[in-house]
Nucleic acid binder design. Structure first.
Lengths: 154, 154
DNA sequence: CGGAAATACTCAGTGCCCTGATTAATTGGG
DNA sequence: CCCAATTAATCAGGGCACTGAGTATTTCCG
């Protein structure tokens, strides 16, 4: 006995939310380009020539995952990857023309999809929805670093 | 130009929320048993002898994923899997003593973890948080079936 | 200058997650 | 009774996500 009620477990709800999103994305946006891939394209539209690590940081992907995503986008010819001549450790990224076109096309569809996804909520509720999720995610993210507890003048 | 603001994209927020949860789960609950695995254990505590497909449905995992999760739990001796003598297509699942012990132990830790995870929200906000996410996820889930549009008396 | 520390990336390994195709078993209608 | 449709599970294949270990490059300090 003593089974927990999963509908009050935020982790379980988060997973279901993402699955629901995945479903709608596939149906309404693209079966080729995934949501994380779009996030990368979107970042590079705003900041062309960014290095790989920073792109990962912007979209919230760790070093390994961003490497895979970049490799797939590069393989499809949506972005170019070159060594930074100033700093041989870095890879600098830049969209190709095809990458920019793809981003433009998907931006429209993504907006439509978000409308449908959020349709069950009123406009006010959407604001709350974003706010609550962001606060929870940010707080947990903040726990990642040991907090430099008190007076850590460094 | 014209890069979208990802902080207003529910899919991006959902992904970040899940990452945050994963981080806390690893730190506070278990590095061995994952959150989906716990969900399976939890379901089988409530309903021993359930078949694989139904367990997947309860915890929100598709046929392929539930098979992998079950196989891992079985390999670790946390559950037993037997063919249904009444219906040779089905696999019936049941926790072992070790599986029950693991579930009990993790239940306590999971509750503590959820407290920390939700700490940024007031008690009222938590209710709203659950409600909004559930509504969005349920609605998208509902779009899966073509809706039997109008008069479909069945 | 020269070596230790930091940084960016890669690689190996594990697990989640989905779709489409295949196989085995059951069910239902002619 | 028999065969077609349905159903449960598996398999193949692609993608996301994390950790820990390893490599190359740069930086910082004595």
């Amino acid at each position: 006995m003593a089974a927990a009620d999963l509908t009050t477990h935020p982790g379980h709800l988060a997973r279901r939310l993402q699955q629901a999103h995945h479903l709608l994305w596939n149906a309404m946006v693209s079966e080729e380009i995934t949501s994380p891939q779009f996030a990368v394209l979107n970042t590079l539209v705003a900041e062309p020539g960014l290095d790989q690590r920073t792109v990962g940081e912007r979209v919230g992907l760790d070093r390994s995952t961003i490497a895979e995503v970049i490799s797939r986008l590069s393989r499809r010819g949506l972005l170019d990857k070159v060594r930074d001549p100033q700093d041989g450790r870095r890879s600098l990224l830049r969209l190709t023309g095809e990458g920019e076109r793809t981003h433009r096309r998907l931006t429209v569809r993504t907006a439509r999809m978000n409308q449908v996804f959020l349709a069950p909520l009123t406009v006010d509720e959407r604001t709350v929805f974003f706010d609550l999720i962001r606060r929870v995610a940010d707080a947990a993210e903040g726990l990642r670093n040991p907090e430099e507890p008190l007076a850590a003048p460094r």
